[in-house]
């Protein structure tokens, strides 16, 4: 499955973009040329040799601010996705096995979460509970979790009721073997797809909150916050919002590409395929099947 995935061109593009973002997030704050909070007399300067991306309205170096803001923007997005995965997927799988009461209650709760106007609740929860980045991550993670609940539940349902699992049990297969061979391969791809989607969505929501000044205190640099301060000086620097925007879009696009690639590799694309992407995925899958057939047969 991972081999198939790696053969797709879009996976490689997405991986390259994500590597770039990861590099910025991990190394960025240490290589920033200036202190992101240090102001200087050159306010709203154009890009130059000393300030590669120019300076903002207080004369702070934009490049340093973007690099320093990366951990808060990207790092918290990753944590949002992890929280959503834990809060959503575990009850989703359990809802299939712990029938009746738990199932009904959890389904109603999930219905409610989906009906809530997302951003309004995220803003209200974060601000009321103390207006910190931790609160923001918990609020957004909780509100995104229904996606994982639904995906995990439907995948588990389809495996639990499938005849091939029944057949494997009758044939005397051990639980470990069934989980490894049948359940895992069926449940993991949809969860991986939603994880990739959530990472993209999470960055947008976290940046939106930061844009509104929720979940972060003013002088702290974040990508959303940089955008918000650029907005006031569009008249002088109409190009300034491009840098944080480009980074946010690259990240979101990479995660969406990855989600699509996983979908293609797992053979789950329900859409009507135009062009060669589907055919490419099919060929890669066939090749992977051929190459992995031989060692398996020898092992058996």
């Amino acid at each position: 499955m991972i081999k198939t995935l790696w053969k797709l061109r879009s996976t490689k593009i997405a991986a390259a973009m994500l590597l770039f973002i990861a590099l910025i997030t991990i190394v960025g704050p240490f290589v920033a040329p200036y202190d992101p909070l240090a102001t200087s007399s050159q306010a709203l300067a154009a890009p130059s040799a000393s300030h590669w991306l120019g300076t903002d309205y207080l004369g702070r170096d934009v490049l340093s601010r973007i690099l320093a803001g990366a951990p808060l923007s990207v790092g918290s997005t990753v944590l949002v996705a992890v929280i959503a995965l834990l809060v959503g997927a575990i009850p989703g799988i359990l809802s299939v096995y712990l029938r009746a009461g738990f199932e009904w209650v959890s389904l109603r709760v999930v219905d409610t979460f989906i009906a809530l106007p997302f951003l309004v609740f995220a803003v209200a929860m974060t601000a009321l509970l103390g207006n910190g980045i931790i609160q923001a991550m918990i609020a957004v993670g909780l509100l995104v979790s229904p996606l994982f609940y639904r995906v995990a539940r439907s995948a588990t349902l389809s495996v639990a009721n499938s005849q091939y699992v029944e057949a494997a049990v009758l044939a005397g297969a051990s639980t470990g073997y069934i989980v490894r061979k049948h359940v895992w391969s069926k449940v993991l791809p949809p969860i991986a797809i939603s994880l990739a989607t959530t990472l993209g969505l999470g960055l947008i929501v976290i940046s939106s909150l930061q844009f509104l000044g929720i979940g972060v205190q003013p002088p702290t640099p974040t990508w959303g916050g940089i955008l918000a301060s650029d907005l006031g000086y569009l008249q002088q620097q109409p190009y300034a919002p491009i840098y944080p925007t480009a980074l946010i879009l690259i990240t979101v696009l990479a995660f969406n590409l990855l989600a699509d690639a996983i979908r293609d590799a797992a053979g789950e694309s329900g859409r009507i395929l135009i062009g060669s992407k589907g055919a490419q995925a099919n060929r890669a899958r066939r090749l992977a099947a051929v190459s992995s057939d031989y060692p398996e047969k020898e092992a058996a």
Binding site: G200, S207, D230, L231, L234, Q235, P241, I248, L249
Partner: peptide
């Protein structure tokens, strides 16, 4: 569909209101 609303908003202001 992947463009966040604040990006669209800023772009629209930059083009139609300022430019």
């Amino acid at each position: 569909s992947v463009l966040p609303p604040f990006v669209v908003g800023i772009a629209l202001i930059a083009v139609f209101a300022i430019w």
